[in-house]
Design a protein around this nucleic acid. Structure first.
Lengths: 161, 161
DNA sequence: ATATTATGGATCTTTAATATCCATAATAGA
DNA sequence: TCTATTATGGATATTAAAGATCCATAATAT
C-alpha cells in the first residue's frame, strides 16, 4: 500500500516544468539530473504523462517537455492515476460475496444484487468510500498549489527574521 | 497502489468472527473454508491480527480464534495497518528536497528546515495530508458497522416487497 | 545531412506478495 | 499421562510488480 517511486519522480518533474514555464522545452537530461534518476527510466515516466495529456513532448534538437496545461489545472489525482493506473485500490476476492449472502440468508431475506447479478460486498463498499475520499483530496491539490506553498513558506520565514 | 489480498481476507475473517460471537472459538479450518483460501496462508494473516491485539488465539483441541474486543472497537484502519504495516504511503526520494531548496534560493531566501536539518518536501506534505484524510475515514468504520449494514440493506429490501 | 531528442519494444534485476511445508508448543479430553 | 487437535514461527518456494537499462526508430532544428 505505497505509492511508487515513479509517482514521486513524476510529481517532482512536473514541478520543475511548471517552475521553468517561461523558458523553452526542458529535455530529459536536465530533468533526470535534477531528480537524480536515469534518463531512460525517467523517459518512461514522462511518456505516461504525455499519453494522459499532462505534458507535451517534442523530439529533436531543442526538443523536450513542457506542461500541456496550466499548473493549476494539473491535479495530484491525475498525475497519480497516469502513473499508477486506474485500478481500484480494493479488489474483493469474495466477489459474489458468499459471506454476506449467508449472513443475510440467516435473517431469512434475499440479498441485494447488483447489475451483474452478484451480491455487493459491504467490505468493498467501505473501501470504495475511502478511495473516493482520498480522490477528492487529491483533486483539490495541484502542481501550482505546491509552487504557491514554496513562496508562502519562504515569506513566512522571511517575516520572522 | 492497491491493498493486498491479505487485507481482504483479514477483514472478511473478522466479520465472520464477529458474527459468530455467541459460539465458541472458530478454527482456521472453518475460516479458510468460508473464505476459500488455504489454512496455512490464512493462519499467517491471523497471526498478524493476533500480534496487534485484534483477535485472541487458543491452540489445542477446541481452540481457534475470537475477537479480542467488541466489533465496534475494531476499526478498518487498525486491521489494514496490522496486515500492511505502518510505513507511510509516500516516501519522497528527494529527501533533502534539493528541488525546493533551489526554488526557494532563487527567491533569495533560505528554506525551512525540519528537526533533522533537512528541508521539508512540499510534495510529501500534500501526500501526507492525503494519507491523514484516508486514515480518518478508515478510523470511522468498524467491523460492527459492516454487520449493521447487512441488516440495514436486508430490511430495506424487505420493506420494498 | 547531421546531431539531437523522444518513443516503444524487449529484457533484466530486484523486491514484495502470495503460498506451502514442517517442526514445535499448547490445550482438551480420554 | 497419552493422544488428537490446533495455533505459531521458521524456512523456503513461487508469482507478480516495480525498478531499471538498452537499443532501434522516428521526428526535428540547424
Amino acid at each position: 500500500m505505497q505509492f511508487s517511486k515513479s509517482t514521486d519522480y513524476a510529481l517532482h518533474a512536473l514541478i520543475h516544468l511548471a517552475h521553468s514555464e517561461s523558458h523553452n522545452n526542458i529535455g530529459i537530461k536536465e530533468l533526470s539530473a535534477m531528480l537524480s534518476v536515469s534518463e531512460s527510466y525517467l523517459s518512461k515516466i514522462m511518456s505516461k504523462l504525455r499519453r494522459d495529456g499532462i505534458v507535451r513532448a517534442v523530439p529533436g534538437v531543442k526538443g523536450g517537455y513542457e506542461l500541456a496545461r496550466a499548473a493549476g489545472e494539473i491535479t495530484f489525482l491525475e498525475v497519480i492515476q497516469a502513473i499508477e493506473g486506474r485500478q481500484q485500490m480494493f479488489a474483493c476476492t469474495n466477489l459474489n460475496s458468499q459471506q454476506h449472502q449467508l449472513l443475510a440468508e440467516e435473517k431469512g431475506i434475499e440479498r441485494i444484487q447488483n447489475d451483474a447479478g452478484h451480491g455487493e460486498c459491504l467490505v468493498k463498499k467501505v473501501m470504495d468510500g475511502a478511495e473516493q475520499h482520498l480522490h477528492q483530496y487529491l483533486r483539490e491539490h495541484t502542481i501550482q498549489s505546491v509552487l504557491d506553498a514554496v513562496t508562502k513558506n519562504s515569506n513566512h520565514l522571511a517575516n520572522k527574521k
